[in-house]
Write a protein that binds this DNA or RNA. Structure first.
Length: 479
RNA sequence: GGCGCAUUCGUCUAGGGGUUUAGGACGCUGCCCUCUCAAGGCAGAGAUCACCGGUUCGAAUCCGGUAUGCGCUACCA
């Protein structure tokens, strides 16, 4: 299939995928979907030492959560060891690579030395020209070698980058990097090139940190006689201190955002805008719109600082756009998980749905919902009695409560309209403004000074609970 | 130290030589709405487009240099 776009997301399972990784996955996916191409998932598990148990599963779950479905894979490099070894040996046989027996001690010392003398660091090519017999002898003595690539000593290598243009590297700055490690695993460089070629990858879209090693990759393609794919190095995502985003910056793993109640659709929208833009004004977009409009030409060159305040805003926008039922359903697991243990389970979904419209526009994340709705579920509410009167005094609060209880006891239809009709006239009667007056009732009923509108809250809470809480407040003032 | 990339409001960004008194968004401030908190509406502050030279009638936009930031510099990816 000539001309078809084939891209891949190739994470290494050395940890949970963070925002930067996922943004890379997203851009690849967007490009594939936009071009009706193929999106491939490949797990680059060639580092046995840093491998993290369960990371592959989390990677796949995260992609699924966001709706980034892949068409092929997951492929695992650890299952293709023979192939990499074969290609490494092929290069050795052709004189384009060589066996290196240098111990890590020697390498360390060499590096220390170079740094101390302020010289560029890099392998000193000690084993580059070993005689055939020497290689055989050392091998049979039991020393396990690595395979190193024979980088050209002079000339330059040009990388064509779709985002950055032509980037030129002097070959003298490239050392003889390792292709095959002594444990039989390939390095990233080898496995990556072999796989990208073998999988017929048309575009390599990855983070900018890879730009420096791209000339090595170009050289490798050339050594194999293969056509390199097109490269596009994406701008990096930075923490507030402008350094590469990492665990140091707090929550960076994508699944933490899921736990914190961010919606996948908001996450996609936000991440898409980190390094890409549609125009000078459009920000809220559906995935379909993003897919339709995505292009590498509009990817920016400059690194972006991850701005969580804007993510929160955007998530709030998406939450408010949800239907009540949808919002309620998606909040349920969070409520189930975070409400006090005393609240009986399972949580009444129907009741939650009644509450939902009252809190929906007040939540920036789903994980805030439990703390917004808890007083609807507990039998009583707790608060400091001073809260009850606020700027008034306890005597006034006591009057307000007494009169309100009396009026409410006579109210038969317990809906917001009737409740307001019963209470509001009292404010004038007793000479208070509505604010402070309702404030007393609000604290008595919800236990807090900020809540959804009073009468709607009372309607949902029901006559019995409301009267009980008002009575409790009244008693509290007498005590 | 070497190599590479980048540089527009605090942050995300628009801008591809004259339409720019540099536009939008988040955040911030104020006002309106209002029973509180939100949401919403309106207004405002906030960028000598890193700096210095050059090209041009004209530069945020093109070209050099400098500075700063970041990345890479592993038998990690």
């Amino acid at each position: 299939m000539q001309g078809q776009v084939r891209v891949r997301f190739a994470p290494s399972p050395t940890g949970y995928p963070h925002l930067g990784n996922i943004r890379t996955a997203l851009f690849n996916w967007l490009f594939a979907r936009h071009t009706k191409g193929v999106f491939i998932l490949r797990i680059e598990d060639t580092d046995q030492a840093r491998k993290v148990e369960g990371a592959t599963e989390i990677i796949m779950e995260s992609l699924k959560w966001l709706g980034l479905d892949w068409d092929e894979g997951p492929y695992f490099q650890s299952q293709r060891l023979d192939m990499y070894r074969r290609y490494a040996e092929e290069l050795v046989n052709e004189g384009k690579a060589y066996w290196c027996f240098c111990s890590s001690e020697r390498l360390d010392k060499m590096r220390q030395d170079q740094m101390a003398r302020k010289l560029p660091t890099g392998y000193d090519r000690h084993c580059r020209n070993l005689a055939q017999e020497q290689v055989q002898a050392t091998k049979s003595s039991g020393t396990v070698p690595v395979v190193r690539f024979k980088s050209p000593l002079e000339g330059q290598t040009t990388v064509e980058d779709l985002i950055r243009g032509e980037v030129i590297f002097a070959n003298s700055t490239l050392d003889d990097f390792v292709l095959l490690k002594s444990d039989g695993y390939p390095t990233y460089h080898l496995a990556n090139i072999v796989d990208d070629h073998y999988m017929d990858i048309s575009h390599v879209m990855r983070a900018e940190e890879w730009l420096s090693s791209t000339p090595r990759h170009v050289l490798l393609y050339r050594a194999f006689g293969w056509q390199p794919p097109q490269f596009a190095h994406l701008p990096m995502i930075l923490g507030p201190d402008k350094s590469k985003l990492s665990k140091r910056h707090g929550a960076t793993a994508i699944n933490e955002y899921q736990d914190q109640g961010y919606l996948p659709e908001a996450m996609i929208n936000f991440l898409a805008l980190l390094g890409w833009s549609l125009d000078d004004k459009t920000e809220i977009m559906t995935v379909e719109e993003i897919v339709k409009n995505f292009s590498i030409e509009r990817v920016s060159k400059t690194a972006a600082v991850f701005n969580i305040a804007k993510l929160e805003w955007m998530n709030g926008m998406y939450i408010r756009a949800l239907g009540t039922q949808e919002f309620s359903d998606r909040s349920l697991p969070f409520v189930e998980r975070a409400l006090p243990p005393a609240v009986k389970r399972p949580i009444d979904a129907g009741y939650l749905e009644q509450i939902a419209p009252l809190v929906q526009e007040r939540a920036k994340t789903l994980s805030e919902v439990p703390s917004l709705v808890d007083f609807f579920f507990t039998s009583t509410v707790e608060y400091d009695r001073e809260l009850l009167w606020g700027k008034l005094d306890s005597k006034q609060a006591s009057d307000i409560l007494g009169k309100s209880i009396a009026a409410l006891e006579k109210t038969l239809a317990w809906d917001a309209e009737q409740l307001e009709a019963a209470i509001r006239p009292l404010t004038e009667e007793l000479g208070f403004k509505a604010g402070p007056f309702f404030g007393v009732l609000r604290v008595a009923i919800t236990g807090r000074t900020a809540s959804p509108p009073l009468f709607q809250t009372m309607e949902v809470l029901g006559r019995e609970l409301c009267l009980a809480r008002l009575a409790a407040a009244s008693d509290m003032l007498k005590a």
